[in-house]
Structures are given as C-alpha cells and as structure tokens.
Amino acid sequence: MLVQRLGNRFTQALRESSDFRGDLSIVVDPSSVVEVARYLRDEEGFDYFLYATAVDWPARDPRFTVVWEVRSLANKTRIRIKTTAAMPEPHVPTMTEVWPAANWHERETWDLLGIKFDGHPDLRRLLMPQSWEGHPLRKDYVSFGEPVIFSDQKLEGLEPDAIRG
C-alpha cells in the first residue's frame, strides 16, 4: 500500500494518514513535505496537480492546515498532502518546483489565507488588489457587506409604485 511505503520511507516525516470516504490523505511535517512530494511524483507517478489550499482553525495550534492534492493519471489515484503552519507568520515550503502547476494555487492561498510559501517564484496577491489589507478567508476576517434594505429604511422614502403596476 502507498501509505505503508510512505511510512517506511519517511518514518519521521509522516505524522498521520487517513482514508475518509475513500480520500487518502497524509499529514506530513512541513520540513520534509517537498521531499515527500518529490518522492510521490517521481516514484509513485503522481504527475497531475489538482489544487492547493489551506484551512484556518483559529482554535488550534498550529493554526493552519495547508493542503495540496495531486493525482496520478496513470494509476487513477489521488493523494492529499497536508501540513501545518503556525501563527504569527504561517509559512510552508512551496511545491512549485515539484509541480509547476501549483504556482497560481499557492499565490491564491497566500492572497486569501496569508500562508507564505517559501521559495515561491512569484508570491504576489492574485485575486485581491495589490494594496488590499488582510486575508479574507481567515476565520477572523469579518466579511459583511450591507444589510438588505426594507421599507423601514428606505433611501429616500419613495412610494413603491413600480411593483404595483
């Protein structure tokens, strides 16, 4: 099994693995995540990069779980590589040298969650304006626009005659 092979090879780095609903995921120590990734690509044939993201767990320490998911087109298998990053400056190694397709996904993760990817060639904001402050997908980021307006707070108090027509 893949997890066993991984466990034999990376005894220190592999923290845990799970198989929830058929999705294989491993949690790897941040320091050796690139090494594991390289092994997965070269030896296990995981050649197709799916996505990278992070999950914010404000109550946990380390706070962020960073996730990459890759697929082997030949074997039709997927594996989810997870690692952790701690506040105040969450950072993990980049995967762009292993899977170049990770470039934008990691930029997006930096943009929206503020995870720094060490060694990323072009870590700029991707979606938000360059001058934006904060990282919107963090749980402590207040995302609220405006309340819906009803008749008690009309803007100019005009009679709603349009809809009666």
Binding site: F20, R21, D23, V55
Partner: peptide, 9 residues
C-alpha cells in the same frame, strides 16, 4: 442537516 467531521474532494 449536519455532516460528519472530515474532508472530502
């Protein structure tokens, strides 16, 4: 409805 703890793709 509630879902179980976990992550899926």
């Amino acid at each position: 409805f509630k879902g179980p703890v976990g992550d899926v793709y």
